[in-house]
């Protein structure tokens, strides 16, 4: 049922879910993840097809080291963009921030569609492959997810993570406690962008082609759905949501064209039926107790 290709897609979904989760953990609803994902993916596609120093061969292979370098550069560029844009948009709150980030996504999509070197509607194709099969991508995607998950887990105990939680609960109170809310929100936004940028770089190689559609408003919706379904109280929520919701349309393929309708129904009914998502604090507490009992 789940082959390696779908598994990689699911892992990419989980990574993008985490990227939406990070600003949300600081109480900021940003839909900008596809913009940063597009930045990382476009950069990786351009570098590996144009820059011979990366060592892409005529047979379309790429050294593993170059992939790692692209992941870093993709994350870096996305992070820089986030630093620039974040200073401006994070002054906005609630629905205004959501709309501003949708605008960012659309501007970047149109730019990638129209810039002279990004291949127009077709995009950039024949992106060199570091791995011969889809199975090769499972490990790097898993490693990236493990790294991101470990970081998010650590974050909960760090001053930055605690400040993010405080802002989420009550921004005004957090500011009165002396928390530099602007910088904390900006940090969460940049972390989210770095993650999305690196994920985009990996996805560009995995998909073999890259065009403007990869970072569209549709992706804002689906990645948001990952967090809604999984739950936003713990980093495990968006991971579970990303894995499940990426697999769902594929697993529903036998159902035929109705699958997108069912996908929409999940987003429509999820917040009504399970407002906290699948991974709730209560569930985590129960799992924690269960773990302790087993240790004894």
């Amino acid at each position: 049922m789940i082959d390696n290709g779908l598994l990689v897609q699911m892992l990419i979904g989980a990574l993008l879910g985490l990227s939406v989760y990070l600003p949300l953990a600081a109480g900021q609803l940003s839909l900008a993840t596809p913009a940063f994902y597009a930045v990382g993916g476009t950069l990786a596609a351009l570098l590996s097809t144009r820059w011979s120093a990366l060592g892409a061969t005529a047979a379309g292979t790429l050294p593993l080291g170059s992939l790692v370098l692209e992941l870093l550069l993709g994350g870096l560029l996305a992070g820089l963009l986030a630093l620039l844009v974040g200073r401006l948009v994070l002054r906005l709150q609630g629905i205004y921030l959501a709309i501003a980030t949708i605008a960012l996504v659309e501007i970047l999509r149109v730019a990638i569609l129209n810039l002279p070197f990004t291949g127009g509607a077709v995009g950039i194709f024949g992106i060199p492959q570091p791995f011969a099969t889809a199975a090769g991508y499972v490990l790097p995607a898993l490693a990236l997810l493990a790294l991101a998950g470990w970081w998010c887990q650590r974050l909960e105990g760090m001053p930055l993570g605690r400040a993010m939680a405080a802002i989420r609960d009550d921004e005004l109170a957090a500011r009165c406690m002396g928390i530099d809310t602007t910088n904390v929100k900006l940090s969460a936004f940049v972390l989210s962008a770095v993650l999305a940028g690196s994920t985009g770089a990996l996805a560009a190689h995995f998909l073999n082609t890259w065009n403007a559609r990869q970072g569209s408003f549709d992706v804002s919706i689906t990645t948001l759905a990952f967090v809604v379904l999984g739950g936003s109280r713990s980093w495990l929520g968006p991971v579970v949501g990303g894995l499940l919701l990426t697999a769902l349309p594929e697993l529903l393929r036998p159902v035929g064209d109705v699958r997108l309708v069912l996908f929409g129904l999940v987003i429509l009914l999820g917040p009504v039926l399970a407002p906290q998502g699948l991974i709730t604090p209560a569930l985590l507490a129960r799992l924690g107790r269960w773990g302790e009992e087993k240790e004894r």
């Binding site: 609803l29 609630g94 629905i95 959501a98 919706i221 948001l224 759905a225 809604v228 064209d257 109705v258 997108l260 309708v261 996908f263 929409g264 129904l265 999940v266 987003i267 429509l268 009914l269 999820g270 917040p271 009504v272 407002p275």
Partner: peptide, 29 residues
């Protein structure tokens, strides 16, 4: 349903997006 429960208003953004996805795809079917 969200209003009845007094849920966070931003959740309505998500549910209405879901409603839009359902409607557009039903139309496509």
């Amino acid at each position: 349903p969200l209003r009845r429960r007094g849920a966070e208003p931003l959740l309505a953004l998500i549910t209405s997006l879901g409603a839009g996805v359902v409607l557009v795809n039903l139309l496509q079917l």
